[in-house]
Write a protein that binds this DNA or RNA. Structure first.
Length: 423
RNA sequence: GGAGAGAUGGCAGAGCGGUCGAUUGCGGCGGUCUUGAAAACCGUUGACCCGCAAGGGUCCGGGGGUUCGAAUCCCUCUCUCUCCGCCA
């Protein structure tokens, strides 16, 4: 979330920048500032009463100990008055704080100054496009036919076991998944990331901290009996490692990588978007997460971007990099790059990665801070990116590499798959 | 799932109704000594909120209660440990 002080001191700027994200902040920002004014004033009154009461309690203690019970009892009456007065003010104080918190967590992050305005994905800016988009043979088929032809993925049985969006990977399909996960993890290790295996369910506090709650609660699966959420991405548990912690500034940047299954309800999706592997309720992803100093975070973002595009090159996939426009950015992000690969048989771009800088938005929510050599506190920036999400990579690999004799596996993956062709 | 014990500062660990934000040890930081280091010795060392400051307030797992006053008493939740049961 945004810091209250920043909102107070830059009301107009905040409202203007939120507008780039298509968020109308005119009402809510004013309300937040006025609530904060009330909060400060109420707290002052409460603190003063409390100070009086503390003083009296001490006096009473001294009187009792020196045997002056009558005087002590006289003072007690005074404290009763203070008590009932502070009770009322305290109730008001709590109500103010509650409303303030509820509003504050609903304000999106501010977009970086370079974020282009725009309302729809069509207004995202193409930063880079690489790899030849070679037209495939006229008889090329989309991946959902290839997975059936080579018995790689059984959507029907997945449907029976669970429902739509929960595919069953089989044989070389399953092995290809495992190979990709290993490849992505090994590459991240070479890049200096520390591997972690996080829980796949998180509590509400964690989901709030990274910004999935309260904004996107309908996107997550919720386990009602235990009040836990299935993770929509490893970002949630991995970033929450650092919730309520104080890092040393010299330990930055912190670089973690995690493989996890991801679960998303994807309510409202339909049509060609959900065909085959294009959009699933359960999918696999390797996620990189960094915590960096405010000064370095945009360098780190570029470095993460370069790392992800490097993976796509190694997989020999044509790709492009988009800088998201305000309207297409997530609630939490200050700047996001999306990576898309070309899916030849569908003749469309598929998003396979999204790398973002959240600046202090998540750090503020989760009370993540770092201390410098002089003991001064700073708020570090959090960043993350998919490196990479599997299903659409698989879709593109299958479609782009299909030949009449089978599907060729990129050289770099062969040590991981143990086979170089699917036929 | 059953029985018991516990949750205090970076860590260990006192405190069990009043001057305790908290003894002490370790660790960290600064210094003395030393050619340098170690050892020894001295000092220092939590976070948050309001305030220009002085200062005030809050925090001893979370929430609630008793009391003039709670780290200390009561209730409740969560978590941890030990034993038993079950089990990948």
């Amino acid at each position: 979330m945004l810091s209250l002080n920043y909102i107070r001191e830059h009301q107009q700027e905040v409202t203007d920048r939120l507008a780039i994200k298509n968020f109308d902040g005119t009402g809510i920002i004013g309300r937040i500032v006025s609530l904060d004014d009330q909060r400060r004033e109420t707290q002052k009154r409460l603190d003063d009463l409390q100070a009086q009461s503390n003083l009296l309690a001490k006096e009473i203690g001294v009187l009792f100990q020196s045997g002056k019970a009558a005087e002590a009892n006289q003072l007690k009456e005074k404290t009763a008055e203070i008590k009932s007065a502070s009770k009322e003010i305290d109730a008001a104080f709590e109500a103010i704080k509650k409303e303030l918190d509820e509003l504050l967590v609903r304000v999106p992050n501010l977009p970086h100054s370079t974020v282009p305005a725009g309302k729809t994905p069509a207004e995202n800016v193409v930063m880079l496009q690489e790899g030849a988009i070679v037209p495939v043979a006229p008889d090329a088929v989309p991946h959902w036919d290839l997975t059936t032809k080579y018995d790689l993925i059984d959507f029907i049985t997945g449907n029976k076991i669970t429902g739509a969006g929960f595919p069953l990977y089989k044989g070389k399909g399953a092995r290809l998944q495992r190979a990709l996960i290993n490849f992505f993890l090994e590459e991240a290790l070479k890049e200096g990331y520390n591997e972690v295996q996080p829980p796949y369910m998180v509590n509400a506090a964690s989901a709030y901290a990274t910004g999935q709650l309260p904004d996107k609660d309908a996107q997550m699966y919720h386990v009602g009996l235990d009040d836990l959420y299935l993770i929509p991405t490893a970002e949630v548990p991995v970033t929450n490692i650092y919730r309520d912690t104080i890092l040393k500034v010299q330990d930055l940047p912190v670089k973690n990588v995690a493989y996890s299954a991801c679960f998303r309800r994807e309510a409202g999706s339909y049509g060609k978007d959900v065909r085959g592997l294009n959009r699933l309720h359960q999918f696999d992803k390797v996620e990189i997460v960094q915590i960096a100093s405010a000064e370095k975070s945009y360098e780190v973002l570029e470095e993460m971007l370069a790392y992800v595009t490097g993976l796509l090159r190694k997989l020999e996939l044509p790709f492009r990099v988009l800088k998201l426009c305000g309207g297409d950015m997530s609630f939490t992000s200050a700047l996001t790059y999306d990576m898309e690969v070309w899916s030849s048989a569908q003749a469309r771009w598929l998003e396979v990665s999204s790398v973002s800088n959240f600046e202090t938005f998540q750090s503020n929510r989760m009370k993540l801070r770092c201390k410098d050599e002089n003991g001064k506190m700073h708020i570090p920036h959090t960043l993350n990116g998919s490196a990479l999400a599997l299903p659409r990579i698989v879709a593109a690999l299958l479609e782009n590499n299909q030949t009449p004799d089978g599907i060729n596996i990129p050289k770099v993956l062969v040590p991981y798959t143990g086979f170089d062709v699917i036929n």
